[in-house]
Design a protein around this nucleic acid. Structure first.
Lengths: 282, 282
DNA sequence: TTATATTTTTCATATCATGAAATAGTCTTT
DNA sequence: AAAGACTATTTCATGATATGAAAAATATAA
């Protein structure tokens, strides 16, 4: 885990909680700039296009798109390929974009999203990553209920008996998964625990298809857990978000209801860390 | 109603070598967009600034900077930190910027080669290219050791004090090298830094002859780095591969041992991108 | 050559970006 | 609590400048 948030210069004092300025009303946007950024964004996912292709597809005048590109080119944000006569994203865009990473950690980004997740579901929200074949719980926002699921941050837990763990396994590439399964022994913690590689693989397929995993009292009797994966820029599952609670509140019927907000939270966190959202498909 | 636009849009034939359009005259730039991009760029290297700090430092009207930021925020290119009331680069900038790497298959092709290089040497492997007289680090596979060399992707570094940089310089043609040396001032970062053009040229000759370069604590005291160039089809050095580690593990005697796998990895990457292998001779 | 496609430049027009200043919101001090 | 001191938004009048149409320039094709 990398937490490198070493703000040396104390900016201004942290204020309490501003209210009125919170929402940038977005009526103050600059139209021409927004259009230019639309071109920038479009080009980034449709690289190698000629000017007229771009202007056609974006329904903008060629002259306009041309000037936008030339301007961005001046700063290295886009690049013109002389051989092919087409446009690409430039190195400076990479340099600037990379500076995004030097700031906040996954945990910080997750915090507000987890808080909201806890509020909408009423259950404890958890964040975990994989570490050496185990799930490492990084952060938790606890429910107000008096019966709670509790994983102190720093807890390590086997992947096959954890909602987050299974969500991560479900998106692991075949090779790594097989090696993992060959090495690991699937310890039983309860009579619900998955102990055979075949059963686990079947569950993982289901998880991949529907987009979330369920820990059905597989680690602790009386506790259910619904988790969804968080992806990085390379579409790799790097973390998982979950809610967990006692079976008394989280019945089998609640699973469907709770899965929506969990998946939505995972989607939001994926976007917040600059990841690529993967729609639940095989 | 929208008119459908389902033309097959076959790419266009690669043209020979256009002459007249090569230089975008840069008189067609859009002023307001350029100013906005200046704010974007400035913010990226001075993150965590409040609106007025930015507008003061950039000598722009607060209202103008404000509208630029709000517009960019609308696309996630910048972000507003409500706690601190300051601005940062946003996740979408990272997403777009990262698409620069997709342009060439260099990074993709390099990835498995770098992983293997890291495993055989035990040290962090790096991939870099030249960008405007600097080395731009594109990708990294980190060692498992707890003491690591760390160049986050996106980092820029002077060429004369970098293993990859020197490997690239060593294969630059005489003219360009001389112009480069005339223009650049060879800044000293440590007492090992090469600061005279003569010394650098001599080192470059050595590098060309033996096929790899060594950064002997020239940028950072306590860090050594061994690098080799990657060539394209025209025998031009377009990238460099390196391993870097602390002097405690990478002693002067290790250099010889590590140089083999580095050169081999560079050779493999050269082949992987369809380049022409250049056997180490003048 | 001529014809066609694509990229630049020119130019007239009115859009809309701009900064000054007013207003609103927040923190600090009394 | 209220005033004072900042900072962030919004308003508004103005003209700078972004825009698209069309012409010119440059390339490809026949």
């Amino acid at each position: 885990m990398e937490l490198q948030d070493n703000a040396p210069k104390l900016r201004r004092k942290a204020r309490g909680r501003p209210r009125g300025w919170d929402d940038k009303t977005a009526q103050n946007t600059i139209k021409s700039l927004d259009r230019a950024m639309e071109v920038f964004e479009y080009l980034s996912q449709a690289q190698g296009k000629a000017l007229t292709e771009l202007s056609d597809e974006m329904r903008q005048a060629p002259a306009t798109v041309y000037r936008i590109l030339v301007t961005l080119q001046g700063r290295g944000l886009v690049e013109f390929d002389h051989e092919e006569q087409v446009w690409h994203i430039g190195p400076q865009a990479f340099v600037i974009g990379s500076r995004f990473l030097r700031r906040t950690s996954l945990v910080e980004r997750a915090r507000p999203i987890m808080r909201k997740l806890m509020e909408t579901t009423g259950e404890t929200a958890n964040l975990g990553i994989e570490k050496e074949g185990l799930v490492l719980f990084l952060s938790q926002v606890e429910t107000h209920e008096s019966i709670r699921a509790f994983f102190p941050p720093g807890t390590l837990s086997p992947m096959h008996a954890s909602g987050i763990g299974k969500a991560l396994l479900a998106h692991m590439d075949e090779d790594r998964l097989n090696r993992r399964l060959a090495a690991a022994n699937l310890q039983a913690f309860t009579d619900q625990s998955i102990t055979s590689p075949e059963a686990l693989k079947k569950d993982l397929t289901t998880i991949r298809l529907r987009g979330f995993s369920v820990d059905n009292e597989e680690k602790t009797t009386g506790m259910r857990c619904i988790a969804a994966p968080v992806f990085d820029i390379n579409r790799e599952a790097v973390a998982g978000l979950s809610v967990s609670g006692p079976t008394s509140r989280v019945g089998a019927t609640e699973v469907e209801r709770l899965s929506r907000p969990v998946m939505e939270a995972a989607r939001q966190l994926t976007l917040a860390i600059g990841g690529t959202v993967l729609s639940p498909q095989p």
